[in-house]
Amino acid sequence: MRLGDLARLVRSKNAGPFMLTLDVLFDDTASFDQAAGVGVLAPAFIATLYDVPEASVRLFHLRDALTIKISFPRKSPSGAFGDDDVYGCQYMARLAAQPLRIGGAT
């Protein structure tokens, strides 16, 4: 199973032109807890997946909103030469495609 199969919605968007934020929304606490416990949603893995420093990755477990939120600075600012996603909308795809390794560390 991939993260995108478990989540109700995986989305990404600029949080200002220099930051990116990803939201992973779940239908219920069971799937939230299942996802929250796996390595896919750990800063180290996110840092590797998006090629950013681990220290720059902020991760929020928002259980009351059934949401896991991940924020980090964009590698290139929105609209800079060579940037290919001005709104930051499709950064979600990489995360959604990751297999869930249930119960395991990264």
Partner: peptide, 10 residues
């Protein structure tokens, strides 16, 4: 959930 949209820190 909307409060979290587009904000780096919720």
């Amino acid at each position: 959930a909307h409060g979290y949209y587009e904000n780096a820190d919720p």
